[in-house]
């Protein structure tokens, strides 16, 4: 089953066309990796899914991204509920300037959940899911800014999971981390896909090969090839794909 179906998507930053006729499915309960050389439009595509581009004036979408049969690019789309169901984890950790606990509770309180026992349970559950609980359970009241980079990134993942999203969008979320933290987050993605759908932008080919089920290669705003990851890495249809995954260009 597809969570999202992208059909003939074009995207413009002002007059600058950054996505050109992109079509691909995002399958449920799987990890889809978006790869391609710098500037090819991976981030741009990812941010179409949760309509992040709407925050800035002059951006424009064409085409459609279907979710449960509706086009989420429609003007009438409720961005608040769309973004609640498609969480996003950025390249640099983005802990809010508040305690570890309040960071996780932020999204719950947004949804007017007031029951403190419920919030506590949810905070613990999400921190466990993000493999962070053991490290922070004694410092829930301390500022999240005091955590290490790797811990902050897992905190952000926990914060995203706390609101029960249908998908989590990762934008090079391990590129600023050490190998151990990276490993933890990769393991986490594999574990998480039982519950949620994952789309991950990455420059790390081993990561894409190890973690993802599907891979999409982009080049200058276009989708070059989309297939099961083992196909992309072993017998791709395009020469460019083969060269890219072997590190011969890009």
């Amino acid at each position: 089953m597809d969570l999202l179906t992208v059909n003939n998507l074009n995207f413009y930053y002002g007059s600058n066309k950054s996505l050109d006729d992109v079509s691909l499915p995002i399958r449920r309960n799987s990890v889809t990796a978006l790869i391609g050389p710098s500037g090819c439009g991976k981030t741009t595509l990812l941010r179409c899914f949760n309509r992040m581009h709407d925050l800035y004036p002059g951006n424009r979408y064409e085409g459609e991204i279907l979710m449960d049969g509706r086009n989420i690019l429609d003007r009438s789309e409720d961005l608040i509920s769309l973004r609640s169901s498609l969480g996003m984890v950025f390249q640099k950790p983005t802990p809010f300037p508040m305690s570890v606990f309040d960071n996780i509770a932020y999204g719950l309180r947004l949804r007017r959940i007031r029951n403190s026992a419920l919030i506590r349970d949810k905070v613990e559950k999400s921190l466990r899911q993000a493999a962070l609980w053991e490290e922070v359970k004694d410092r829930l009241k301390e500022s999240a800014l005091g955590l290490s980079g790797g811990q902050q990134q897992r905190l952000v993942i926990a914060r995203t999971l706390a609101v029960d999203p249908e998908a989590v969008l990762f934008d090079e979320s391990t590129s600023a981390l050490d190998p151990v933290s990276t490993q933890k987050i990769e393991d986490l993605m594999i574990e998480l896909k039982k519950a949620v759908t994952i789309v991950a932008v990455t420059h790390n080919m081993q990561q894409a090969a190890r973690v993802s089920d599907y891979t999409a290669l982009m080049y200058i705003g276009k989708l070059v090839e989309y297939d099961r990851t083992e196909v992309i890495f072993t017998k791709p249809k395009h020469k460019m794909t083969e060269e890219y995954v072997l590190g011969k260009f890009g």
Binding site: L55, S81, L82, R83, F90, F96, Y106, L110
Partner: peptide, 15 residues
């Protein structure tokens, strides 16, 4: 990026 992180959680601008 901090604002975006909050928007990405579905927060309205005033929140």
């Amino acid at each position: 990026s901090l604002r975006e992180a909050a928007f990405a959680l579905g927060a309205p601008y005033h929140r």
